[in-house]
């Protein structure tokens, strides 16, 4: 059904990429998280996400490099925002890959294996579950706007941004409230918070899993050498 990779490895990879991206110093420190994200998406066959991520990263990198410095304070702030977005890009790529290739059962299994408290696991699962729904709701609302003669997309945004914002948010809020209400009722009556929930046992990692572990450990170590060097100086 889906390209197989242990969910615990996916979480570890996201953690490793996140830490190396946020702790790293300078533009070259982003090499490790981007390599991790690229290999991850290639292995899972998520080529479209990879292409979008790479294009976004290139655009951000070029913007950071070629920012005019006529007003240094403003330029500095914009550069910081752009650089922070660049740091977040590999994480977004990995999370997008995880969302497209994982099931909620895998998530529940992994959280149980990691002894996540139930009070945290349920909101995490609900949040993950709500993302694709939200994407589809926005799609329906965009369709409805088109058919009512409301121009969507960039042209519509430039012509009348406030109206467009209202037209998008009003039905979205109404639908989200209803969806949340129905989803909560459905999940609670089917025992989401029942104390005796069973998850299928987490499968053993296998050779592939251990190879991934070794690869992640190596990448993180290599990524931290420049950090250690900067700190030592």
């Amino acid at each position: 059904m889906r390209p197989g990779m242990d969910f615990r490895i996916k979480l570890l990879l996201a953690l490793a990429a996140g830490v190396s991206s946020l702790v790293g110093v300078g533009i070259w420190s982003l090499a490790v998280p981007f390599i991790l994200a690229t290999v991850f998406l290639l292995v899972l066959g998520q080529f479209k996400t990879l292409a979008w991520g790479a294009a976004g990263a290139c655009a951000l990198l070029l913007s950071v490099r070629h920012l005019p410095d006529t007003a240094p304070v403003v330029s500095g702030m914009v550069a910081y925002l752009l650089f922070f977005s660049l740091k977040m890009t590999p994480l977004l790529m990995i999370f997008s890959g995880i969302a497209c290739t994982s099931t909620l059962t895998e998530l529940f299994c992994a959280l149980d294996f990691l002894h996540f408290p139930k009070g945290l696991a349920i909101p995490v699962a609900v949040t993950v579950r709500f993302m694709p729904t939200l994407r589809r709701e926005i799609g329906h609302i965009r369709d409805a706007m088109s058919i009512r003669g409301i121009r969507v997309g960039l042209p519509g945004f430039f012509v009348n941004p406030i109206d467009l914002f209202e037209y998008l948010t009003l039905p979205m809020l109404v639908r989200c409230c209803r969806l949340a209400d129905e989803l909560a009722a459905s999940a609670m009556t089917r025992g989401l918070d029942a104390p005796e929930r069973l998850s299928p046992p987490a499968p053993p990692l296998g050779l592939g899993g251990y190879l991934w572990l070794a690869g992640i450990a190596m990448a993180v170590t290599v990524g931290f050498v420049p950090v250690a060097w900067v700190v030592a100086r």
Binding site: H140, A144, I150, E166, L170, P171, R178
Partner: peptide, 8 residues
């Protein structure tokens, strides 16, 4: 679902 189509 008419809720999708009511904007104002």
């Amino acid at each position: 679902d008419p809720d999708y189509q009511l904007f104002t």
